[in-house]
Design a protein around this nucleic acid. Sequence first.
RNA 1: GGGGGUGUAGCUCAGUUGGUUAGAGCACCUGCCUGUCACGCAGGGGGCCGAGGGUUCGAGUCCCUUCACUCCCGCCA
Length: 594
Amino acid sequence: MKKYRTHTCGELTKSNKGQKVSLSGWINKKRDHGNLLFLDLRDNYGLTQCVIDKSNDIFKKIEKLSLETVIKISGLVIERDIETINKNISTGEIEIKINELDILGKTKELPMPVFSDQEYSEEIRLKYRFLDLRRKKIHENIILRSKVIAFIRNEMQKLGFLEFQTPILTSSSPEGARDFLVPSRLNPGKFYALPQAPQQFKQLIMISGFDKYFQIAPCFRDEDARADRSPGEFYQLDVEMSFVEQEDVFEVIETLFMKLFKNFSNKKIIHKKFPKITYEESMLKYGSDKPDLRNPLEIIDLTNIFERDDVKFDIFKKLVKNGSIVRSLVTKNTKDKPRSFFDGIDKWAKEQGSSGLAYFTFEKNDQISAKGPIGKFFSEMSLMEIIKQTNANIGDTIFLSCGKKSDVEKLLSVARNKIAEELNLIDKDSFSFCWVVDYPMYEIDEITKKIKFSHNPFSMPQGDINKIDLSNPLKLKAYQYDIVCNGIELSSGAIRNHIPELMYKLFEIAGYSKNDVNNQFSGMINALSYGAPPHGGIAPGIDRIVMLLAGEKNIREVTLFPMNQNAQDIMMNAPSEISEEQLKELNLSIKKKT
RNA sequence: GGGGGUGUAGCUCAGUUGGUUAGAGCACCUGCCUGUCACGCAGGGGGCCGAGGGUUCGAGUCCCUUCACUCCCGCCA
């Protein structure tokens, strides 16, 4: 017989009736009736009710045990009377009549309860993460994460992909996020960088002839946190394929995601074939390159309306004359919504740092008119034109934002979500995937006004490779794509540029000389010169996939040991100071704060 | 770097217009209780009201500064 247990706490049923068993686990809950005591024992697998009465000598000892003590109990499996069966747990038909007890691990008074539905502050949860992780919901999330990763590995292998590990200590690269740096002892004054993604390595794997690669890859970026973004580290399903075009990558990912989401969730997947939306269209209709397609609202440009003489709304007209744009959102049949609803939206918009959202509702008595604070500024003809352009009906409301293009996009993008939430337009029981394609190769840096890569500098520009027109770089599109689900960006990817001469030209536009490229991407550019296959890939975020499947809004709910917003691990006390010896060995000195 | 929210018992929270000795539930301790499954009942211990300064006869409450956590913006090829 095993030392600690014959069964787990989740497996005994009435078919085990009469057996002498041993269970080990945590005391989840005690119900002490004075002469009779119930004790719920918990382990990874479930709960089992154990019972003891005062006729047993160890009754007094058990009474004194506090919750979360780890014990081993032995006793007989008893079938419960029908009226005392607990249907909520798998072992609810039976209980164990305790006759032996071993205390395996004592506990101090708990800083946070384990068995409770209450919510706790992040601080206490992260500090005592090992207690937090005993709680049901997050415990199950972490198990789900394990199963999702196992499933992905299995599917990828079935699709013919090979899993490889790439270096964790690598070189810093100039593009992209801030690097985490590691000083080199053997090379004083020099630093390794932790990979932001195995980008160059996965391309090198293709050039090495392995054809199809994947990895559950840790990625490190020293950027500020968000609810859906851990500070420090996260995991990607890193994928790269040789001799492929964009569509080949899409096919693999769609196959995998359909299976994955069907297997781990009951929510419906709205599109069997994921729709493709161009970057330009997405920015116009949704104000964002990660649209939530569960949301039926779409943004429509109405700048032209404010160039008409029969529209008297001078604030917008003046702005439009100076180059501003006007875009709108239409809500269906909202004429009976109280004034407080509309003013609430406007107030909210102002809180977002904008100048607010103007609005009016279409009415019809003798003629079409607009009701609302700015309604009087519009002639009937202009209203009819708005109705034509927006497909609105009488009774619908139109919200207007005016300003600089990027500001209008940003505001209406969040307003779209806000208004849809308020009107309950989003089907929370579904997944809506889409591809965002045709990203521009370059964009203007708003601060330096210089041309820079808008995404990945290694992407292949669209068009015939041999005669790509580089004279107007801002018009150049790349084979660069994102996959989005429910407004969450899961991944971006690209067909890579495998032609060194073309790469030099593209880098030159972004201000890198041939020498810069040779120095900063030496490994890659060198390898591309020795026979590189056309290749491309993608890297979906594992944490965000699990978040979606678990129905969580915060990435820490699916991460075992996350850091807090200031990138500290308050349980392990990281980051921490290091000794003088260590500094000396690394040739470093710390500047004292002034 | 900027903006919002929060901070009161081990935990989750209440605390009126500034006014007696700062409360509740859970947890902990003591007692009672043989069918509970969020067991019940009675009692008890536990507070630098995040910190510092100010206004006031009097501050958990008002003002200023500051710290921590969190959400958002910037940032995230």
